[in-house]
């Protein structure tokens, strides 16, 4: 049994004033996430990531196809699915700001059927684990974005779910808070929970995911490990160099085997080469020109994202 099994899933929305025009948010999506896996779902805004999460969490019905969580159909056996899943959305919303952290978690624990001593123990344990115990009695309105996000995760875990759906969980977080959050996702994996995480952040997907599924315009483009997806882009190598004289730049552009020469926003020169022998020639030219600020790179997940989805994907945050 897989943790998540999606087959031929479609979801249409009515748009326009009368809702008579249809737009397809998901189109024939197939996806399998195994038990204990951390799966990244990456794609630009409007790709269908949140729609997919909503269908899996039973708050939205699919137009056609099926979505199963731990063998239970999200449409026909929604009550069982709800007991097995936890959902965490990014951003400030979704918490009761006028209640304190402990009251928030107690409310949600009751919603998941906990009561009495087990409820209190579970809430205290989560507050401790997420580093919120010292602020448990403070109103959530007074929390920082990072603290709110940790409380969101605690809320998502309060029902002890086997499957966690994290929809853009680190959006708007500062880098330190985002790093801490990623390490918490690592803990979820170590506990054997299945995690489906949607993100725009390629570094995040590379850091925490076993497999990544790229999605765009409601269709799955590909699924593979982050490193394997990096191989999807043409097998170019890349040399990045700073303070390159103009004459050397022209020589590099004319060199056979050099695919492209572009200036990065930082001012450094990025040279794409067809293979490693050309890379050697490029490096020699640069060293002979007195350039000492040099590095070579292999394509990564971000390159694959840009290659498959294009600049449109990076225009959204």
């Amino acid at each position: 049994m897989s943790a998540i099994e999606i087959r031929a899933l479609c979801r249409d929305y009515g748009v326009g004033r009368a809702g008579d025009k249809r737009t397809q948010a998901l189109s024939d999506v197939d996806l399998t996430v195994e038990l204990g896996e951390v799966r990244g779902l990456v794609g630009p805004n409007g790709a269908g990531k949140t729609t997919l999460c909503k269908i899996l969490s039973t708050v939205l019905e699919a137009t056609s196809g099926s979505a199963q969580v731990l063998g239970h159909d999200a449409a026909t056996d929604a009550a069982t699915v709800r007991r097995h899943i936890g959902i965490v959305f990014g951003g400030d919303r979704g918490l009761y700001g006028r209640l304190n952290a402990r009251q928030n978690l107690r409310f949600w624990a009751a919603m998941y059927g906990l009561h009495g001593a087990p409820l209190r123990l579970r809430v205290d344990e989560l507050l401790e684990r997420l580093g919120l115990a010292d602020r448990a009695g403070d109103r959530v309105d007074t929390f920082s974005r990072g603290m709110k996000q940790r409380l969101h995760l605690a809320r998502g875990l309060v029902g002890d779910p086997r499957v966690l759906l994290l929809d853009e969980p680190t959006v708007g977080m500062d880098p330190v808070a985002a790093r801490d959050f990623r390490s918490l996702v690592g803990e979820m994996r170590a506990e054997g929970r299945t995690v489906l995480i949607t993100t725009h952040d390629m570094a995040e997907a590379e850091a925490v995911c076993d497999l990544v599924t790229m999605i765009d315009r409601g269709r799955v483009l590909l699924t593979d490990t982050p490193s394997a997806i990096g191989e999807v882009v043409p097998r170019h190598e890349r040399v990045v160099a700073g303070a390159v004289p103009e004459q050397t730049r022209q020589a590099l552009t004319a060199l056979p085997g050099v695919v492209s020469v572009e200036q990065e926003p930082s001012g450094r020169l990025r040279v794409e080469t067809a293979d490693s022998s050309v890379t050697g020639t490029v490096l020699r030219l640069l060293v002979e020109a007195g350039v000492s600020d040099l590095s070579t790179q292999r394509p990564n997940l971000e390159d694959a994202y840009l290659h498959l989805i294009g600049d449109r994907g990076m225009a959204v945050g």
Partner: peptide, 18 residues
């Protein structure tokens, strides 16, 4: 408005109790 409706809809308990 506070963004909890989606989460309530995905919880096992009925909305009406809330």
């Amino acid at each position: 408005r506070v963004g909890t409706l989606t989460l309530l809809s995905a919880a096992p308990a009925p909305l009406s109790w809330v």
